[in-house]
């Protein structure tokens, strides 16, 4: 589904990601781990089109997405969440959820002034958004400003928003960072449900390995911008090289 071949990214001559090749198949949940500064987030930003690649090629469902802008990549069905929950803080929870929906009539300047052209579509979107929010127990918060939510709720809203564009695959950057353990567990359960019910695919950066390893099929380990290892969770835990860079033993 997602295929990276020999992807590199330089910042002012500094190599942040070096020669990374990885692949994720339809319906998989794949983990991406590594010490701080190993280039995981940069890699996610490169895949989602936020940073242009320096070298290499990225394909998503047979499309070459290497040169595409973030909104084009998003519309192909590759969504993403953020490490620091990145929301429209001055807008409501409902607005935040609806915004990524694919192009609507009411966004066309010719139709926007006339409500009858887009009322129905808007209703459907609002209902779908409400449904998604209810799945994560936030249905009753739809009218609240995003800036008034708790940290965990912001994370959940971030995921709910990525869902709204009906993506086939989500890139998540530390979905449980700064979240209390019970909520973290339910965030991962939500992810597992999405895989099961909507056949969604995930590539997840996470530091909570105990949590992550219960849910992922495979794990990639990055170190100093390079791919260090790639295996199932159990094998990764046994891998001496990984233990050395990651756990320091």
């Amino acid at each position: 589904m997602l295929e990276l071949s020999k992807v590199s990214k330089d910042f002012d001559g500094l190599r942040a990601v070096s020669n990374v090749s990885l692949s994720v198949k339809q319906g998989e949940i794949v983990g991406l781990i590594g010490p701080n500064g190993s280039g995981k987030s940069t890699l996610l930003n490169v895949i989602s089109g936020r940073f242009p690649v320096t070298a290499g090629r990225i394909t998503f469902q047979e499309h070459d997405i290497t040169p595409l802008s973030p909104d084009r990549i998003f519309h192909l069905g590759l969504g993403r969440g953020f490490q620091d929950p990145s929301l429209f803080y001055q807008m409501t929870v409902l607005d935040n959820t609806i915004l990524p929906a694919k192009a609507q009539k009411g966004e066309n300047p010719l139709f926007a002034p006339f409500k009858r052209f887009w009322r129905q579509e808007e209703h459907q979107l609002a209902e779908r958004a409400y449904e998604i929010l209810t799945q994560i127990d936030m249905g009753r918060l739809f009218g609240q400003l995003a800036s008034e939510l708790s940290g965990g709720q912001m994370k959940l809203l971030d995921i709910a928003r990525s869902q709204m564009g009906n993506p086939q695959m989500l890139l998540l950057d530390e979905p449980t960072a700064g979240v209390a353990p019970p909520l973290a567990q339910s965030i991962f359960e939500h992810i597992a449900n999405l895989r099961q019910n909507e056949n969604m695919t995930f590539l997840i950066i996470e530091h909570r390995l105990d949590m992550l390893f219960n849910f992922v099929d495979r794990v990639y380990v990055m170190h100093m911008g390079e791919l260090l290892a790639h295996d199932t969770p159990d094998e990764i835990l046994e891998n001496a090289e990984v233990r050395e860079v990651y756990f320091g033993d």
Binding site: S48, G49, R50, S69, P70, D71, F74, H75, G79, R80, F82, S86, L87, F88, L99, P100, K102, A103, R161, S162, G165
Partner: peptide, 9 residues
């Protein structure tokens, strides 16, 4: 930036 990434043209 966020508007760009979540697919707003």
């Amino acid at each position: 930036d966020l508007a760009r990434v979540i697919g707003i043209p």
